[in-house]
Nucleic acid binder design. Structure first.
Length: 241
DNA sequence: GCGACAG
DNA sequence: ATCTTGTCGC
């Protein structure tokens, strides 16, 4: 586990939120790197994946993987403390430093304006955007049915994100700035990454590879220890103290 | 006090 | 996050 308490984590978010920068110039990246984590049911093992996609061809140019353990629980609003440490490791394994990170989850559209995408961007110093599958804790009307339609997410008068329809008549995704990029460009890039599917190609590829590896690790593949033997070992399923 | 609550 | 086949609809 971690010695970091929930209260301390919240204080850190409030301290780090001021490090988020939003430039007025465009980034115009050639590639986007998606990061995602897959959790192994029945163990605390997890697999983090980084997948870089060429924005012109939408093909994968590089991937990196890291296996680790979750040392911070899932607490709504504190997702960054659970996932970002592993993201820093996988991103560090990439030969080419990412130009833009695409994170599962929210950026500024977060109760303290410091979602995991901001956390990831500030921690790595790399521009980042957040694309969440579920709405933030702000009320957001649904956009029109057509792909490309969007409605703004507001914190008072501050425009902090968009509910964006990436596929006609399909549930929208929630886009917000993580770090070092403008909201409009973030939306442009998400639309470029979603010509066919609801979720960005970056996270789709990262997620796909993660599941495949998790299946090879604990599934019925020839490389894993037979599950019936593990289950029959006394103490095999109990947590070490 | 009772729910809601990214992944 | 994860457990999971078919099925309703365009």
């Amino acid at each position: 586990m971690t010695d970091l308490s929930v209260d301390d984590a919240i204080r850190l978010q409030e301290a780090w939120r001021d490090r988020v920068r939003i430039p007025t110039e465009r980034l115009d990246p050639d590639t986007a790197t998606g990061v995602d984590i897959g959790y192994d049911s029945a163990s605390d093992r997890l697999v983090a994946v980084a997948a870089t996609i060429d924005l012109a061809t939408l093909t994968v140019t590089e991937v990196a993987v890291a296996v680790g353990t979750a040392d911070f629980p899932y607490v709504p609003g504190l997702l960054g403390f659970r996932e970002v440490p592993m993201f820093e490791i996988v991103v560090g394994k990439l030969r080419d430093r990412p130009q833009l990170l695409v994170c599962d989850g929210h950026g500024l559209a977060h109760p303290r304006r410091f979602g995991s995408a901001c956390h990831l961007g500030v921690a790595t110093g790399i521009p980042a955007i957040g694309v969440a599958k579920n709405p933030p804790q702000y009320s957001v009307p649904d956009p029109a049915d057509q792909r490309g339609s969007r409605t703004g997410v507001y914190d008072g008068t501050d425009h902090i994100g968009y509910s964006l329809r990436t596929r006609t008549s399909v549930k929208p995704v929630y886009v917000s700035v993580g770090h070092d990029i403008g909201l409009d460009e973030a939306v442009d890039i998400v639309l470029r990454l979603t010509p066919e599917y609801r979720l960005p190609e970056t996270t789709r590829q990262a997620d796909r590879l993660g599941r495949r590896l998790l299946a090879e690790m604990s599934g019925d593949s020839a490389l894993s220890v037979p599950s019936e033997r593990l289950a029959s070992q006394p103490g095999a399923i109990s947590e070490p103290t």
